[in-house]
Amino acid sequence: MKPEWELWAQEAKAEFPKANSALLPLLHRIQSQEHYLSEDTIRDVAVLLKLPVPYVESVASFYSLYYKNPVGKRIIHVCMGLSCALNGSDELMHHLEGKLGIQEGQTTPDGEVSLLEAECLAACNLAPVAQVNLRFVGPVTEDTADQLLTGEVKS
């Protein structure tokens, strides 16, 4: 457990009337530091919020943005929604897979980049759209696709 988590937990709890509500925000905050939620992290969060471990485990496993396994520092989500598909997202995904030498759902062996499918990202006006560490990029054209891999990363 990192020393600052205690404080983060206090802050999350202070914001909501019930401790449970603090769970999602705290998981987000810790994950943004740790990149993923290990079993130990889940236990720590349970302790911090005085929630049963299985409860935290079960909740975390429900949401697709909580990662149970390590992911890359750069997480690329390619939207596979219908509007994006109509505008070439399949091709974009293939292109990135080729470039990175990995399949969708995987992380590069050096642990730098994870390539993930996203369901419709509610940015169909930017189709085909992607997110890099949850920051929108789009429309991604053949020419700009590679910027997904190299552009500045925010987290």
Partner: peptide, 15 residues
């Protein structure tokens, strides 16, 4: 286990 006994030892994992 969870609601009735109050000992949460089983859980639903995933979605």
């Amino acid at each position: 286990m969870g609601e009735y006994v109050g000992e949460e030892q089983l859980l639903l994992e995933g979605r």
